[in-house]
């Protein structure tokens, strides 16, 4: 009985050694983690920029199009809104892995910068979801705020910039942080196009050692700890924002 436990334990220790200590294989996980975090961070940055632009176009169209003066501006607005609609439909209607492969094989043909490719692919993907988060944030601001801004003489863009967006941004900050967490996990498919992220790191160890359980468990654990950590941060943030307002 004890002998069986002993040999099981010894086996685990040996596996652990092979997977992470031997030939410094743990470094695959550390660089992988680094890349995963970098990709996620820059992807969210790109996503936020795309998201703000698209949400402004879409909410402006929804609120103002009917009352705009006919002319060049109105046509530009219609085209921009149409384009944003297409972007949202395509991005949300296709799998992120397919988008990643298209960017890797068709767009960045000559580049092998994994972080760049990952950040751009996931950024373009995330932009669609961030746009909807921001749009709901803008729409959630009471129309009275727009009216107060306009009645003082601000034009629509100034009203958005000084009055509506700061409030909307504060309202959507928790959702945005959640998008970051979702994105963190989504980047795990980056290995599909040879980007060495955390998951790929574990997979490389698996290939080199023929061990399956240890490396994958380690990868899963690292994701879990990261997600739990960021979730906690989001909760603290949310509580802060709530007490600040009232």
């Amino acid at each position: 009985m004890f002998e069986a436990l002993d040999s099981l334990w010894a086996g685990l220790v040996e596996d652990f050694y092979t997977c992470f200590i031997e030939k410094n294989r743990w470094k695959y996980l550390v660089t992988g983690l680094e890349n995963t975090l970098l990709i996620t961070f820059f992807a969210l940055l790109i996503g936020v920029v795309i998201g703000i632009v698209i949400s402004i176009v879409r909410s402006t169209y929804a609120k103002n199009y009917q009352e705009m003066k006919p002319g060049f501006g109105k046509k530009v607005m219609a085209v921009a809104n149409w384009f944003c609609g297409v972007y949202l439909t395509v991005i949300r209607g296709t799998p992120v892995v397919v988008q990643l492969m298209i960017i890797y094989y068709c767009v960045f043909v000559s580049s092998s910068n994994g972080i760049l490719i990952g950040a751009v692919s996931f950024g373009i993907n995330s932009g669609a979801y961030v746009a909807e988060i921001f749009r709901s944030g803008i729409m959630s601001i009471d129309n009275g705020q727009f009216e107060a801004g306009r009645s003082l003489g601000f034009n629509y863009v100034q009203t958005l910039r000084y009055i509506v967006l700061p409030q909307a941004f504060k309202n959507v900050l928790p959702s945005l942080a959640n998008e970051f967490i979702v994105l963190l996990k989504e980047t795990s498919v980056a290995g599909y196009v040879a980007v060495r992220d955390l998951t790929k790191g574990g997979d490389i160890i698996r290939g080199a050692t023929y061990q399956t359980f240890m490396p994958l468990l380690a990868v899963a654990l690292i994701y879990l700890i990261l997600v739990m950590f960021f979730t906690r941060l989001v909760n603290i943030l949310e509580r802060r924002l709530r007490t600040g307002e009232r």
Partner: peptide
């Protein structure tokens, strides 16, 4: 203009 619901900027 002064509104029924004040519409001050809360931020």
């Amino acid at each position: 203009m002064v509104f029924q619901h004040f519409n001050l900027f809360p931020h």
